[in-house]
Amino acid sequence: MGEIDRSAIPPALVLRDLRKTFVKTAVDGLNLNVCAGELYALLGPNGAGKTTTLRMVAGLLPADSGAIEIFGVDARRRPIEAKRIIAWLPDEPMLYDKLDPLEYLEFVAGLWGAEPRRAQTLANELLETLGLWEHRRERCEGFSRGMKQKVALAGALVHEPRLLMLDEPLTGLDAAVARQVKDLLVARVKQGATIILTTHILEVAERLADRIGIIQRGRLIAEGTLGQLRGMGGDDNASLETIFLNLIAQSERAA
């Protein structure tokens, strides 16, 4: 990844002692720092609290306690201001079946108050890049899962968020679509955007992420670049999968 001078910019995301309990504790005093302009992969086993954490950052779930700062904005006290600079892409696309992709992008741009002419130009570019241009006037109800995911991704990018959060963005996509999405994400990071993604496809995290955080039972148990994580495991050639499984097993034993 290209180096960006990050000293003058506040961190993209700071979580301090974040907690959320449903019936069980989902997020348990989570502390996290994501720098501006990096691609951060948040990994963890099922039920570790990844999606709950990101939903709290997106303003979809109220936190029980703790602090959320997005580019210096206190998201719990000034949620509208924080939402203005973020985008949230869940694993199930948030679409309207009866709208076509262009109408959907217009609607999302309108919600985020994007400048109409700029948003329209960007929408056209995104549809071209993602191979949706020919389908821009077809209703989403007839689309495959991959096409729906691409429309939703275009929606997340059309208002030019500074922080983009994606929950399992590659699940269910074929190789060609997955490559398109990965290329687009890398291009966005090069342009200065910050991306946080959760994924169970560890190869994606291994190849794309600047830094990787591993959470279990709502707590951060390890964080660093791939090299740093290998160092923790004591094996410089280990795959992320091996490191991940070892760290989870160690954490289980310690619990």
């Binding site: 309207y96 009866k98 709208l99 076509d100 262009l102 109408e103 217009e106 609607f107 741009a109 309108g110 919600l111 108050g113 109409p116 002419r117 948003a119 329209q120 929408a123 821009r136 006037r137 077809e138 209703r139 109800e141 007839g142």
Partner: peptide, 30 residues
Amino acid sequence: PPPMRWRETRAFRANLGATMRAKERRLILR
């Protein structure tokens, strides 16, 4: 799904209220 009638692309709306109304109208009429 039923084919859409081809329409010329027109400019995005600048007003949130107009965008919301258009979205609700389309979802019901379609």
